[in-house]
Design a protein around this nucleic acid. Structure first.
Lengths: 334, 334
DNA sequence: TTTTGTTTTGTTATCGCTAACGGTTGCGCT
DNA sequence: AGCGCAACCGTTAGCGATAACAAAACAAAA
């Protein structure tokens, strides 16, 4: 293998024109079966890999959908991803993932990079973006779907849930069960807007019934079981009378539960726990922890469907805005 | 915004040639500060997003590194990813992830797709590939690094650990602690070659000391705590005398531990447990479970370093093959 | 002023592939 | 034979940027 095989090499070896070879390899019509077979045979034999850069430049179309999420470590976005993939599989489009790291500047850079490849669609988590990003999303000449969140003003299409409402609903459930000395443990706010909204909704929900948070703890960095366990231990040490803790993530509530197991506290008798997301790690625990299902997979699926639909329709479709309803799973910890 | 802004539009508005505008925007030298400022200003004002497809075709270079992993759900690959990202951040290269789903055919397709974008490097998990894939990897005119595994013959560069040895080492540890009635719970073999190697190494390690597996269970699909719990329950029901279980993944061993917690079994007195990977979910549990650290982050870092190094050096470097040594963490469960 | 050297800017020719359209062939029909 | 229609296949002209080279502008040296 001296030099990279080009389409013209394949064409020459097959004794046809470049154009015919191109058509044959793309499965385009107007090629006889004999010719197609010959071209394919030669391409395969020589390990020809088409240059999609050239192809896309020429055809002005890219079979990629950009997906920008804050992180892959959290267990939550892979599931959105898998919803997206499963829907795109019915089309020639493929998802490409970019990581924003919960940073607006990073997000801006990643989105600029993604858009510079002229994808067929862009799916981005969240409604909060830098000004430059907003401009890019508005000007992008491909379908853009903001996902996960419905509290705010989407720039284009949107599929998500109301985190404000999710927090409020969980507050209602907790109050309804008689808990009154309530703590909250969540991510460092400026970074994760959706966690902040849940927090705000939660506090508002408590306030509506005249209850205030007894204690509050924020942490930086990724959510981790160990962090949840540690912060829970600390909070319970500070506030021995606490009867319930709401966490911004299931990963954290599992950590809290681990503390309880280790400290011999019974849940929910000694302390009630509730998390958010309905992550797979909740399944299999000795006790089913309360959580809110964040509709991750459906959100991914809908977003992908919107991309496909908007792309296929010539006319400008009206903007699609969908708010899914998260379901609370009370489990056995409340 | 009627039509997509092109470089020539920016150039026209700035009163310079396309070439100068191109240079200015890329930060290339040979542009006066005044001109550069003007071009940048206009580009920003109009939200110009360069077309990297055209740029890459012309410059014959793509600032992307393809990373192909079996799954993102497993908690193990995100960490490899993050090792890769952290190293690439010092360069203009960016990682792009493709998912092979533990399927060789899918992997072939994903790699073909990736290579068709002519990336600056390709990092792929595992040493086992379809014939067509092998051919592609050998012919690819960019650095190729196979990662995670060192048992076998790499096609090009390689950074990994010996899973065979890891299994063998864990067997030695388990035997050294006096366990003799040992079970194994692992993924469906044909899919996950590394899990199979650990299994083979484990069985061989036991055999060396005249011990045979007492029981064995395979499951299909993703590893999950719930699955680990269920299979553990079943296995212990079948084999009440079992004194130790080795799992192909920490996710599963955590499930096993959850069963023990729920069933009131004490670990390791009633049954000892050991997993693999040293995943973050192990941290924070009431009991530290035995595991083997799979060096995920270092592997990602080294792979990225190799890509950078090989790319920068004009000459053909000799192939780099590195076998990292996984460290067993005995924890408190053996 | 002329010359030389250094910046800065412009021109031309691709990069590898495909859209659009034009041409050829073969066949059935009148 | 002559015509029309399909089915194939080839030619031409880009896609939007950049490499490589050429030219112009400007400054310093002679």
């Amino acid at each position: 293998m001296i030099k990279k095989m080009l389409l013209k090499d394949v064409a020459r070896l097959a004794g046809v024109s470049e154009m015919t070879a191109s058509r044959a390899l793309r499965g385009a019509p107007d090629v006889s079966n004999a010719t197609r077979a010959k071209v394919e045979e030669i391409a395969r034999a020589h390990g020809y890999v088409p240059n999609r850069i050239a192809g896309s430049l020429s055809s002005q179309s890219v079979n990629l959908v950009a997906v920008v999420v804050p992180s892959l470590n959290s267990f939550v976005f892979p599931e959105v991803l898998s919803g997206i993939s499963s829907v795109l599989k019915q089309s020639p489009l493929k998802p490409v993932v970019g990581i924003s790291g919960y940073e607006m500047d990073e997000e801006e850079e990643v989105i600029r990079e993604m858009l510079s490849w002229r994808p067929s669609g862009l799916i981005v988590a969240g409604l909060e973006h830098s000004e430059a990003t907003q401009k890019m999303l508005l000007q992008a000449d491909c379908p853009v779907v903001e996902v996960m969140d419905a509290d705010g003003t989407p720039l284009r299409h949107c599929v998500g849930i109301s985190h404000l409402q999710a927090g409020r609903d969980m507050a209602a459930q907790i109050l309804a069960r008689g808990y009154r000395s309530i703590g909250f443990i969540g991510t460092k706010m400026p970074q994760d807007f959706r966690a902040r909204k849940r927090f705000d909704g939660f506090v508002a929900g408590l306030a509506e019934q005249g209850v205030a948070l007894t204690d509050l703890e924020h942490y930086a960095g990724d959510s981790a079981i160990a962090t949840g366990r540690l912060l829970t231990a600390q909070m319970l040490a500070r506030q021995p009378d606490l009867d319930c803790i709401y966490y911004s993530s299931d990963v954290m509530s599992v950590g809290g539960y681990m503390h309880c197991l280790a400290a011999g506290l019974s849940v929910p008798q000694d302390v009630a726990l509730a998390g958010f997301n309905n992550l797979p790690i909740l399944e299999g625990l000795p006790l089913q922890l309360a959580t809110t299902d964040a509709c991750r997979r459906p959100i991914g699926e809908r977003a992908a469907e919107i991309v496909l639909k908007v792309r296929d329709s010539a006319a400008d479709l009206p903007l699609i805005r969908e708010t899914l309803s998260p379901r609370i799973n009370l489990g056995q910890s409340l």
